[in-house]
Amino acid sequence: MQYVYKRYGRDRAGIVATIIHYRPRSAIRDVGKALGLTEDVTARLADTVWGSYGSAVKDEHVDRAGVSRDDPRMALVLELTAELIRFPRHLSQHVGGFVLSEKPLIEIVPVGNAAMPDRTFIEWDKDDIDYLKLMKVDVLALGMLTAMKRAFRMIEVSYGRPLELHTVPREQKPVYDMLCQGDSLGVFQVESRAQMAMLPRLRPTVFYDLVVEVAIVRPGPIQGDMVHPYLKRRMERREAQAADRPFVIDYPKPSARHGPPDELKRVLDKTLGVPLFQEQAMRIAMEAAKFSSKEANGLRRAMATFRHMGTIGTYETIFVGRMVERGYDPLFAQKCFDQIKGFGEYGFPE
């Protein structure tokens, strides 16, 4: 990241701000502190809350913490905590988003010095930047890139084999055999427990399978209930190939008077008729729900700010209603939109 500052200068490059909003735990701690609760009480309450984006502290959380809901002060704490959740708390720095400008940044936006030396940040977030049409570049600042660089150096020193990213052998069967066994500890992107559990079920054999693997263990496909249908399709395809018989996909389709039966084939062909990626969700909105470019862009914006602004629900009736009106299965239409809401939490493009 320091390269960006050196290349473009701190006067024309700055890290974008990100707005940290209150979540249940942070809201409990701050409200409890303001109302004079002891640290052990607020800690017990906070420790009962799981997940980052709840909208309230539930009664069972209070009971589990061993405090009385009948206490007037505790009732006020819970009331104010519920009101505070999702309100802005403080500004932080984006993990890698830079604004680059032709003019000095101080002529355009408030600028501050970051805690780390030789770093500058601006006080506007990505939505402000998008609205003002300023140039934003995301820098992929991953420790794994450093680990790969060191690994290449060790391989060259130990085995005399110079390697770079573009010269690493691809599609090596032993690698896929290892992954199919769930043996992926330390393997970037597929080392979590959820990914380790998914690998033997998905059984990747080519690189695109890994693209799907990374994307499928995310809120979008999970909330849209697309994971099991996709795995079932893969199993059916393997069985068809083993039996040397054709594998036919029944793609979701509108009624005959509203469109051709293969309307979504181009959108869903690579993922066996099951939407998994953000681009597919947006294409379904345009192809199946007949969103205009303006509506699709509004949906994209709502999806990007779903955590904080919650405006995505305004599109649900339009999206589902139009698909059903055109003859699509209501359950499929609803699952598609549930998936879009999941992408608002976290999702992957193809």
Rank of each mutant, 00 (worst) to 15 (best):
I15W: 09
G347P: 04
R89N: 13
L134H: 03
L299E: 10
P204W: 00
A56N: 09
I284L: 13
E39D: 15
M235N: 05
L76V: 00
G97S: 13
M303E: 01
F332Y: 11
K136S: 00
K232W: 05
G36R: 02
L45K: 04
K136G: 02
D209I: 00
K133Y: 10
L272W: 12
T271I: 02
Y3P: 05
R266P: 09
A114S: 10
I28F: 04
Y3F: 12
R218W: 07
L210I: 14
E191T: 06
D30C: 10
S55F: 01
V211L: 13
S55E: 14
Y346A: 13
L80K: 10
R326I: 06
A114V: 09
P174K: 04
P260W: 01
I340Y: 04
T305A: 12
I312K: 03
E107L: 07
T305N: 10
E287K: 08
M226A: 05
R203C: 12
E102Q: 11
A194I: 12
V320K: 08
K290E: 15
R218A: 10
G321D: 08
R257Y: 01
Q280I: 09
D40M: 03
S192E: 07
T305F: 01
V324N: 00
M74Q: 03
S184F: 05
H21L: 01
F152D: 02
E239V: 03
P117Y: 09
A288K: 07
L179W: 05
S292A: 02
V31N: 10
G186F: 01
K270M: 03
E295P: 06
M135C: 11
G273D: 04
Y8A: 10
T311Q: 12
I28R: 03
P110G: 10
P117W: 06
V62T: 12
I340V: 14
L91G: 09
R193C: 02
K290Q: 08
D250C: 04
R25A: 11
E295H: 07
V190K: 10
E239Y: 00
L165K: 04
K58V: 05
E107Q: 14
P260K: 14
Y3N: 03
S184Q: 02
S26C: 06
E60C: 01
A65Q: 02
V67A: 01
E79H: 10
I108P: 06
M309C: 11
E83I: 04
T314F: 08
Q172N: 09
K149W: 02
E102Y: 08
K265C: 09
L84W: 11
L231F: 06
L163R: 11
E316M: 07
S52L: 15
R170P: 01
Y131R: 13
K133Q: 14
S68D: 14
A82M: 10
S192V: 04
F337S: 05
R266A: 15
A289T: 06
V62I: 15
L91C: 08
K341R: 14
P229D: 07
E295N: 07
L272C: 01
S184C: 11
P330E: 14
I108W: 12
E191N: 09
L100G: 08
V137Y: 05
M323L: 07
V248L: 12
V67Y: 13
